[in-house]
Design a protein around this nucleic acid. Structure first.
Lengths: 214, 214, 214, 214
DNA sequence: AATGAATGAGAATTCATTCAT
DNA sequence: TATGAATGAATTCTCATTCAT
């Protein structure tokens, strides 16, 4: 007996999906369980999203949107590249810690074997930040704040490498332990964040800056 | 009718397992298929390794051994930290390109949800390099070659972040595409390697060095 | 928001149903798809026809009506039994070729497992032709045109056997191929029809006639 | 816990499959139910026959084999065409009555929508009898026993039409009722068989014979 | 020791049917 | 009256694992 789904149920499916996919991985997540947990019928799930992968992609979209919104929200207007980077790093770490589900979803795509989907997602997701980073770096180079012997694209790549690893560091058992092993810090405890950020900034300043990244 | 397994069959199971796990991922790899491809019975596989995960761990061991051997083989004796890093980076990139199976196996562990196993593996795998990197960096710091405002452990962490991402860059559809998007280079083509290595070195020298990492 | 259904929609459901049932078979035909294709809601379909089988029966009715109309339209007034048979055969073959949907619907009933419905439909459908054939044959027998050593009912049965198989011969992959295998003719090509009809008539004349069926 | 299947179980699956497919039709037959009824695991069924259709085809093979064996067993050596036909008809009717499962399986193929499989099966099944009938008829024609104005291939087709319809007449609710409607006889009661056979023979003698088919 | 036939729980997906609007 | 979003039981197929040989 069909009953109009509440707004909460509608968004709930995706949220439940994100949680399940993040917790169990794509293969181990169970569409029947997700539907039940979300208080919705399997039929609805499949009618709406076509198949499991379609539903996964929908969950992904939301995760990525949340991630990009968090990053957009971090105001960088009128800042120096160094200030921008610092803001970005702080936002990234905060977000990774509070929304590790989203990060694990992101991680899930990078592990996918569906070549076509992998490429498509990589283009969409990485395309945005690649361009954003490049633009900032290029401007920094023109202003003489960033070294020019590393092309902006490569510099963006190396910067994003650091960012990705920081994201992963707080999501997933393996990366958390790796963080412990390397830093001796407890990943779930934000106490050391400030120091970490300072160190990352020092690292980046040296890596990319001209006489220190401002 | 039991027949003593040949040496080739014995190692073949693991190699086949690595290939299958790397290609399909843990969940999609099929123990029956692996046994058949390796010319061995499923019964043997399970009797020897207990269960699928036990077999996976065995495959992992070999992958990691190969990885660590490759890194050990890269002679760094008597070199400056900078020369060591360069040698390591070159080895890492070469290895990732030629043995992407092993890298994908490594990636597979980082994605595992079995908290206990994840931790255990992280301790074993990352423990080694964490210590090795730390030692080199500390020595570099004492020799005045490496900046001291970033503690050796954190510096090791940031260095390893770069190394990990370089490994992934050449294994798996998503990371390959990401590499394309960022650098404009074709990941499967080694042509641009030298330049990339130079740029990474420039980056690291600035990031970690004192007046340039030697 | 309910909208009065147009006449076209109303008959369209049945026509669409016939097409789908004929093409896919009862089980594979999908009520949701039929409704959508017919531009009508599933709700309407079920409210009007009760359930899938009820709808199927409605589609059947129309198919059978079309079939019996085609046969009624074939004027046999004042003809000899032989002429009547020839007219009937020609009509049957033509109809089967142009309206294979209807034939396949007919075939669909003969395959049904619902004992009660099967019986009911057999009574209705076969009852009509059984009686018609019997009457013609009996009259022919009285006129000395048809052999009397086969009772009219059995003669009607044997005649209808031929008619049924001719209907099937042009509808459905299996029967089409069987037709090819036996006759070497292409079932979709009407070129050989005249000859076939002559041969069927020769067969029937001998089978039923007295000194040749007139 | 795997247990070697008994010979009985092995053949039982197919027999159970035949019963279920015959009783319920291809779509309504349930692989889980079949396996359970046969005392075998679903896994075995699918491992052995690939998929539901593969299993169905296997059931079909057995049905057809039984059918063709019954026909082969009916000795026609040294008989006139008329005697051969009579023997064939009797065998067909007996078989259809006692093994209606096999006939319904046969019927099931003729209803299939898988064009390729339909063609393939039609070639295999009808090819055999088409050739056998043609040969007998041709020989009869050469001996002056069978009319020559109907080509042997077409005569074979018309003869097989009768045979098919006789098979169906005793299998399936629709055809049984049709038989009742036309003949007034009870299809499940063999009492009227002799008379029916005489009448069919009279029909065929006239249809195909020269001065009566001997 | 080694085999591999056999198992059966589990998972994705479908679709006839309902009923609030 | 007509709608169509929502339902969930049912069905095919997979694959890690077992154990008699």
């Amino acid at each position: 007996m069909p009953k109009k789904l509440t707004e909460e149920q509608l968004t709930g499916i995706i949220d439940t999906g994100i949680r399940e996919f993040a917790d169990l991985g794509y293969e181990n997540a169970n569409t029947n369980v997700i539907a039940k947990k979300a208080g919705v019928s399997v039929g609805y799930l499949f009618k709406t999203y076509g198949d499991k992968q379609g539903f996964f992609v929908a969950c992904l979209e939301k995760s990525l949107l949340a991630l990009s919104e968090a990053i957009s929200a971090c105001d960088t207007a009128g800042k120096t590249p160094g200030e921008k980077a610092r803001a970005l790093i702080r936002t990234t770490i905060d977000f990774s810690r509070t929304h590790d589900d989203y990060i694990r979803m992101y991680y899930e795509i990078t592990a996918m074997r569906d070549g076509k989907l992998s490429k498509e997602m990589a283009d969409r997701i990485e395309g945005l930040s690649a361009e954003a980073y490049r633009a900032v770096i290029e401007k920094g180079q023109q202003e003489g704040l960033i070294r020019t012997d590393i092309p902006a694209t490569k510099a963006a790549f190396l910067f994003d490498n650091i960012m990705m690893m920081l994201q992963f560091a707080f999501a997933g058992d393996y990366y958390k332990e790796r963080y412990r092993v390397y830093t001796g810090l407890e990943p779930d405890d934000p106490a050391g964040d400030e120091i970490l950020i300072d160190e990352v900034m020092a690292f980046l300043r040296g890596a990319l800056g001209v006489g220190g990244l401002h």
